[in-house]
Amino acid sequence: MSDVVALFSIFILAIFIGFEVVSKVSTTLHTPLMSGANAIHGIILVGAIIVADHSDTTLELVLSLIAIVLATINLVGGFVVTDRMLEMFKGKKK
């Protein structure tokens, strides 16, 4: 299997997993779930670090450092705010 096809297969399989894991979720959890999923895409931080390492010119470096700042805010802030929301739910279940 060529690299391109392998990556494409991973993409397609991930779509099905993504559909499957959230197919049934009560409205109560829509907000935390959106926020949690939002935090996960902050993982673009990894991509930003990789391009910062590659950077040769000042322009490339500046843009990738901005990307790192933005991605870190998304990733870290996202998980913290989701946790704060979910903390409110604890101990309320019978």
């Binding site: 991973i10 993409f11 779509i15 997993i17 993504g18 559909f19 999923a37 895409h41 993982i43 673009i44």
Partner: peptide
């Protein structure tokens, strides 16, 4: 990770 978020 990106696809999971996109699909869900």
């Amino acid at each position: 990770a990106g696809t999971l978020v996109g699909a869900s």
